[in-house]
C-alpha cells in the first residue's frame, strides 16, 4: 500500500497528469481509441465521429460558459459560421480543406469576438439574451444572403482528401475527428493550468477582484469569446467536411441548447465533462431508438412513440442532473476515482 506520491520539483508537481494512476488511465483510453475503429461497425464509427465533433464543440462552449462564466446561446450560430466558412472557402476559392478549416476557425473567432462585445456591460441572463441575437442574426444572414450561402439550399462540398485518399468513409474520417478532439482537449487542459486560463476562471468567480488584481477583464472576456469560438468553428467545419452537406437546419437554436445541455450534464468547467456530455447526449437518442425497435414486437405501439420519448428524455435528463448531480458526469467520474483511490478502505486521506 503506497502512502502517496511526492514530487520533488515544481515541474513534476505542475504536470498535466502528475499521478501514475492518471497516466495509466490515459494510456488505456488512448489504446482503446486507437483499437476501436478496427473492431467497430460502420454505424459505431459514425457515432464515434459524431461524438468526436461534438467533443470539440462542447470543449469550445465550456471554455466560454463553464470556465469563463459567460453564458452563450450562440453556439449553433458559431458552428454555422465555421461550417459555412469552411465550405465556401473550398467551393468558391478552391482552397484545400486543411486551409479552409484553419481559416474557418479564425473567421469564427472574429465573429465570436464581435458578438462578445456586449459582455462588456452584460452578465448572466442579459448576456445570454444578447448572444441569442447572434443566433438569430447569423441564421437570418445564411438563409437570406442567397448569393453567398445558397440560402436555404444545402451546400454540397467535396469530401476531403489526405495523401491521395478520399476521407469519405467513417473509418477514414475517424482519424481526423479523433485528432481534432484530442488536440482540442490537450490545448484546453494546458490553457487552464496557465496564465490566461487562470484569468478566465478568475473572471467567472469574481470579476471585480480579478480587475483589482491586474486582469484586464474586458480584454480577457473577448479573448475567451475568441478562443471558444475558434474551437466551436472547428467543430462546425469538421461537421461540414464529415457530412459534405451544409444546411442551416443543423445550426439552429436547438443546437445551441443541445450543447449547453452537454456541458451541464457533462460538467461545467471540466474537459472530461465536455467529452462525457458529448458522448452521453449523442448516444442517448440512439439508445432510446434501438430500445424502441427492440420492443417493436412485444409492444408495437411503442415504436411510434420513440421520437416523443427522445424529446422527453432530453428534458428529463437535464432536470435529473440539475437536481441530483449539478456538477455533472465529471463529478460522478471523480467520485468513482476517489472511491478506488483508497480502496478497499472507505475513507479519504
Amino acid at each position: 500500500m503506497h502512502s502517496g506520491v511526492f514530487h520533488t520539483s515544481y515541474e513534476a508537481d505542475m504536470g498535466l497528469r502528475p499521478m501514475p494512476a492518471q497516466r495509466v488511465r490515459l494510456a488505456l483510453f488512448v489504446a482503446a481509441v486507437l483499437i476501436f475503429p478496427f473492431f467497430a461497425s460502420n454505424y459505431g464509427l459514425n457515432l464515434a465521429n459524431q461524438v468526436a465533433i461534438a467533443t470539440v464543440g462542447a470543449i469550445g462552449l465550456n471554455i466560454l460558459t463553464g470556465y469563463t462564466g459567460q453564458i452563450s446561446l450562440g453556439q449553433g450560430a458559431f458552428m454555422a459560421v465555421g461550417a459555412y466558412s469552411a465550405g465556401l472557402l473550398t467551393l468558391r476559392l478552391g482552397l484545400p480543406w486543411g486551409v479552409s478549416i484553419g481559416l474557418a476557425c479564425v473567421i469564427t473567432a472574429a465573429v465570436g469576438v464581435f458578438f462578445g462585445l456586449p459582455s462588456l456591460r452584460l452578465k448572466g441572463l442579459y448576456l445570454a439574451i444578447a448572444t441569442l441575437a447572434a443566433q438569430v442574426i447569423v441564421e437570418w444572414i445564411i438563409t437570406h444572403w442567397t448569393a453567398l450561402t445558397g440560402g436555404t439550399e444545402a451546400l454540397v462540398i467535396p469530401a476531403p482528401e489526405l495523401m491521395g485518399e478520399r476521407l469519405n468513409t467513417d473509418f477514414r474520417f475517424y482519424w481526423v475527428g479523433v485528432t481534432a478532439a484530442a488536440g482540442t482537449a490537450l490545448f484546453a487542459a494546458n490553457l487552464f493550468r496557465s496564465r490566461v486560463g487562470r484569468a478566465f476562471v478568475a473572471i467567472r468567480d469574481q470579476d471585480i477582484a480579478a480587475s483589482a488584481m491586474g486582469v484586464n477583464v474586458f480584454h480577457y472576456k473577448l479573448l475567451a469569446f475568441a478562443t471558444s469560438s475558434f474551437f466551436v468553428g472547428l467543430s462546425g467545419a469538421l461537421l461540414a467536411y464529415y457530412r459534405t452537406i451544409v444546411t442551416w437546419e443543423r445550426f439552429t437554436l436547438e443546437t445551441s441548447i443541445l450543447y449547453l445541455a452537454m456541458i451541464i450534464v457533462g460538467g461545467l468547467g471540466t474537459i472530461v465533462g465536455s467529452f462525457l456530455g458529448a458522448v452521453f447526449l449523442t448516444l442517448l437518442p440512439v439508445l432510446i431508438g434501438s430500445a424502441g425497435q427492440a420492443l417493436q414486437d412485444a409492444a408495437p405501439g411503442v415504436a411510434g412513440l420513440v421520437p416523443h420519448i427522445q424529446q422527453a428524455a432530453f428534458g428529463l435528463v437535464i432536470i435529473v442532473f440539475l437536481i441530483f448531480e449539478p456538477r455533472g458526469l465529471a463529478k460522478i467520474w471523480r467520485n468513482v476515482k476517489d472511491y478506488f483511490h483508497v480502496w478497499p478502505f472507505a475513507y479519504r486521506r
Binding site: N190, S194, V196, R198, V201, Q206, G214, V215
Partner: peptide, 30 residues
C-alpha cells in the same frame, strides 16, 4: 472576494498575472 473555485495556489498565481506574459497560444501549447 477570492476566486473560490480555484485552489489557494491558483489564487496566488493569479496575483502574479501582471508579471507574466504568456498568451492563449503559449498556454495551450505549454
Amino acid at each position: 472576494e477570492l476566486f473560490k473555485h480555484m485552489t489557494t495556489l491558483d489564487n496566488l498565481m493569479l496575483g502574479r498575472h501582471m508579471h507574466m506574459r504568456g498568451g492563449v497560444l503559449d498556454g495551450g501549447l505549454y
